[in-house]
Write a protein that binds this DNA or RNA. Structure first.
Length: 543
RNA sequence: GCGCCCGUAGCUCAGCGGAUCAGAGUAUUGGCCUCCGAAGCCAAGGGUCGUGGGUUCGAAUCCCGCCGGGCGCGCCA
């Protein structure tokens, strides 16, 4: 069922074609004005057309009104009196109450699927995120990636796509060697900074824990395997505590062992885009927008990380992912151009913008008014586990996802710990619990058949209208890869519910009215629960 | 120096394919529980949207310069 906004839009588009068959209009913008004096739906199309038609905006609006009124009324959307022209030429309409209330019926019918989108074409998509190397516990930046990546995956699934969550890590590089040396040194009783401690070794407490389990101090290979396994297990446990699961793990070493790296190099050479210089093999990435060309094979014969990166993305393409989203910190932004350039050089028919990236700024953790930079366990950084321990999984998830990815984010631990008014997570969850408690109080009393036309109050109609926005908010958030839009929507929905709840009694004696109000409450509950689920946050029935 | 991102209320941040876009939360102040959960509601004060230009009938939003902040600029990953 198309909602009021879509219908309004379509009628306007027809209207534009009638009054101005030759006008060039990309889209008719319809918005929901914040100011109720401006009606429920509004468009500025007359202002946009006025120049092309060489008419005053208000005159254009008049024409549009005269050709559209019949359709708007016959669709039941509004009444002739509900259509107005305001300001410089806005066309505003007031939506009929019985139309507003349709979102309630929809929510009650669809329940857990309320808000779900129906993609025109179901596509295979992949979100790669976290992808931390097993050299230490996950830090807060990984936490932001986990929260973002999982929410984005959920949003895409919600639109009907087949989404794979993938984790890529390097289990064999120089960083891993450093890890092994650090553990070995520790096992020999050498402390960070002392003679014999590896340069840029890992100094966190976890190194000591791993070292304690080491028996054969001289077997570096065994130490490496043990340390990697240990940290992988710890990272998995952290992610599990965070409620994030992955479908596929890819090891960088497998790209070498399966010959994918060799193949990529051969293909790059075959593309004619490479050249030899200073004993190294270079790729002309500048042909694809990079600042400078990149080394493919170093003069010592080994490959730069750039090659496995490209080889890895070729496998993504070959596995049939039409859309691939990589969630990373902004410190990786230089790889965006590089990876895309590498893929373009191969001329495999991969689109120029493949893969997509969502880059997030780093998270600053503040506690007690001061920045927290270290943790005992990891040494030089705050861990995701720290955050979960301090404020709980739901608060961490909601906080980390409630800001635009590219804005720097100050995570105020004290604020997130606050189980009260200042904490937006509890605000939304509380609204959900409140609805549930109303139903809990109902006991044996039957809700009865709902006659939604009994909902006539300004606040309940506003709430119903807000409900109708949920599907489009979710769709837009998926389109923009921007879960924060859902977080903001949920706060607004919760606020309107709290406001309504305080002004009207739900369980009134009038049975029909009570049933109608309960229907509204149940619908709100579905929107809150579904929205929270999109962010990976629980919707408790009691708090 | 070059590239990308960011600069909106005391604080944390939405809005940024132009108009109906000066917003939310928090903090401050004052109200609301004999009544479905006060983890809530209602109200007030608070901003030249970093700055200077430009485009436009109209700019927080688009373009350019400048200032301030973040990140990147390895034959490291």
């Amino acid at each position: 069922m198309a909602d009021a906004k879509d219908i309004f839009k379509k009628i306007l588009e027809d209207g534009v074609r009638t009054i101005a068959p030759n006008a060039v209009v990309d889209v008719v913008h319809v918005e929901r004005p914040k100011n109720p004096d401006h009606g429920d739906l509004s468009t500025n199309i007359a202002l946009q057309l006025s120049k092309q038609l060489k008419l005053k905006p208000r005159d254009v609006a008049e024409k549009l009104r005269s050709v559209s009124t019949a359709a708007l009324v016959s669709e039941g959307l509004t009444t002739p009196a509900g259509i107005s022209i305001a300001g410089p030429g806005f066309l505003n309409i007031k939506v009929n109450p019985d139309f507003k209330v349709r979102s309630i019926e929809q929510a009650l019918r669809e329940q857990r699927n309320f808000g779900r989108g129906k993609a025109a074409k179901v596509e295979k998509m992949q979100v790669e995120f976290v992808s931390a190397n097993p050299t230490g516990p996950l830090h807060v930046g990984h936490g932001r990636q986990a929260a973002l990546g999982d929410a984005i995956a959920r949003l895409l699934e919600w639109q009907g796509h087949a989404v794979t969550r993938e984790y890529y890590y390097n289990d064999a590089g120089a960083q891993i060697d450093k890890l092994a040396w650090s553990v070995q040194a520790r096992a020999k009783g050498i402390e960070p900074g002392q003679t014999g401690w590896p340069e840029e070794g890992y100094a966190g407490e976890y190194i000591e824990e791993i070292a304690k389990e080491i028996t054969a101090v001289e077997n570096l290979d065994a130490i490496r395997r043990h340390a990697v396994a240990y940290l992988r297990k710890e990272q998995d446990a952290d992610l599990q505590a965070f409620g994030v699961k992955f479908d596929v793990y890819v090891l960088e070493s497998s790209l070498y062992s399966e010959g994918k790296v060799e193949q990529a190099v051969k293909a790059l050479v075959a593309s004619g885009k490479t050249y030899e210089k200073d004993g190294a093999l270079w790729l002309r990435t500048t042909d694809f927008g990079d600042d400078k060309d990149r080394v493919v094979r170093k003069s010592d014969g080994s490959y730069t990380y750039f090659v496995p990166d490209v080889a890895y993305h070729v496998t993504k393409w070959r596995r049939g992912f039409a859309k691939v989203i990589n969630v990373q910190g902004t410190d990786h932004h230089s790889t965006v151009t590089r990876v895309r350039a590498g893929l373009q050089a191969l001329a495999l028919g991969i689109p120029a913008g493949y893969p997509d990236y969502v880059l997030h700024s780093l998270v600053k953790v503040v506690r007690g008014g001061a920045e927290v930079k270290i943790s005992k366990r990891a040494g030089s950084y705050v861990t995701l586990r720290d955050l979960i321990d301090w404020v709980g999984r739901d608060a961490v998830r909601f906080f980390l996802v409630s800001r635009k990815a590219d804005s720097e984010f100050v995570f105020d631990v004290d604020l997130a710990r606050e189980k009260s008014l200042e904490n937006p997570v509890y605000y939304v969850q509380y609204a959900h619990a409140r609805v549930c408690s109303v139903f809990a109080q109902l006991g044996d009393a039957r809700a009865g058949a709902a006659s939604l036309e009994r909902l006539t109050g300004e606040k309940e109609l506003a709430l119903a209208s807000r409900l109708a926005e949920f599907p489009e908010v979710a769709a837009a958030a998926a389109q923009e890869l921007a879960p924060h839009a859902v977080a903001f929507y949920l706060r607004e929905l919760a606020a309107e519910f709290h406001s309504y709840y305080n002004s009207e009694r739900i369980l009134v004696d009038d049975e029909a009215l009570r049933a109608a109000r309960l229907a509204l409450c149940a619908a709100v509950r579905h929107a809150l629960a579904n929205g929270l689920a999109l962010l990976g946050v629980s919707a408790p029935e009691k708090m």
